[in-house]
Amino acid sequence: MRRCIPPALLLALLAAPLQAGEGKARSDYILRCAGCHGMTGEGTVEGGVPAFPGSVGAIAGLDEGRTYMMHVPGVVGASLGNAQIAEVMNYILGEWSDGSSTPFTEEEVARRRAIPVADVVTLRRAVVATLEAEGIYIADYPWP
């Protein structure tokens, strides 16, 4: 008789060595973000998930972009504390930006998560418009 390992348990088992060797932020990324953004941060156009490379650093360089990042569905539903979210965001910035972005702190995450955002898609459009006005073009976002 074959026994199936639930996918969440399998991911937890695979990520366990990463916590000791490569860091908790990376394992939190794998467990909570990679399902949509992938291990390479590329996302999927079909799934409406934008890519990190060439985008996340530019977004994090704007005040409104940093607020947007705290309100994307994956962050809102991540079941992580503010310090853990800051660590994961800094991991993402370290992997897929040019390194010039200011790191997130626990305090900043708490403050930005407390800012009401009625429509995250509208906020992303505003961030994109600001970047495009500066001549910066980021990954496509297929939401209406």
Rank of each mutant, 00 (worst) to 15 (best):
I115P: 08
E132S: 11
P142V: 11
H37D: 02
L31S: 01
L80A: 03
V49R: 06
I85P: 00
A129G: 13
Y137R: 14
V45M: 14
A15G: 06
G41R: 05
A126W: 09
H37C: 02
A51L: 07
Y68C: 08
A16H: 12
T44S: 15
W143T: 10
E95V: 01
V72H: 00
A83T: 13
I92T: 09
L80N: 02
E46R: 13
N90P: 11
A16M: 08
I92N: 03
G81R: 07
G57N: 03
A139L: 11
C33E: 02
A110M: 06
P6V: 07
A126M: 10
Y91G: 03
P144F: 13
V117Y: 00
S97G: 03
E132Q: 14
A114E: 07
G35E: 05
R32K: 15
A110Y: 12
Y137A: 06
A12F: 04
A139N: 06
T44W: 05
T122M: 10
Y137V: 15
A25I: 02
E64L: 14
N82D: 15
A118H: 07
R112E: 15
G65I: 02
L13W: 12
L80V: 04
M1Q: 09
Q19L: 06
Q84K: 15
E95Q: 07
R2D: 12
G99H: 00
D119L: 06
A133N: 12
G35V: 14
E134G: 13
V49M: 08
R32V: 00
R2E: 13
Y141Q: 09
T105A: 10
E107S: 14
A12Q: 15
A20C: 09
P73F: 01
P73S: 11
A83G: 07
A16L: 13
R26K: 15
E22L: 06
I5G: 04
R2V: 15
K24M: 07
R66G: 03
C36G: 04
I5H: 08
R2W: 01
T40L: 10
D119T: 10
A20N: 09
G81F: 03
V109P: 04
P103L: 08
R26D: 11
Y141E: 07
Y68I: 08
D140S: 14
G74D: 06
T67Q: 10
P53D: 03
S27W: 00
T122K: 15
P7C: 02
I136E: 06
S97H: 02
L14T: 10
V45K: 09
L131N: 09
E107Q: 09
G57I: 00
E46A: 13
H71T: 13
E95T: 06
E132C: 12
Y137W: 14
V109Y: 03
A126R: 11
G54K: 03
L11Y: 02
G77F: 05
G77H: 12
V109Q: 05
L10F: 03
N90E: 03
R125V: 12
R111K: 14
T67V: 15
G43N: 00
G41M: 02
P17H: 02
M39G: 04
G35T: 09
V76D: 12
G41A: 01
R66V: 07
W96R: 01
G74V: 07
G48P: 01
P6F: 05
N82A: 07
G41N: 07
A12S: 14
F52W: 01
R26Y: 05
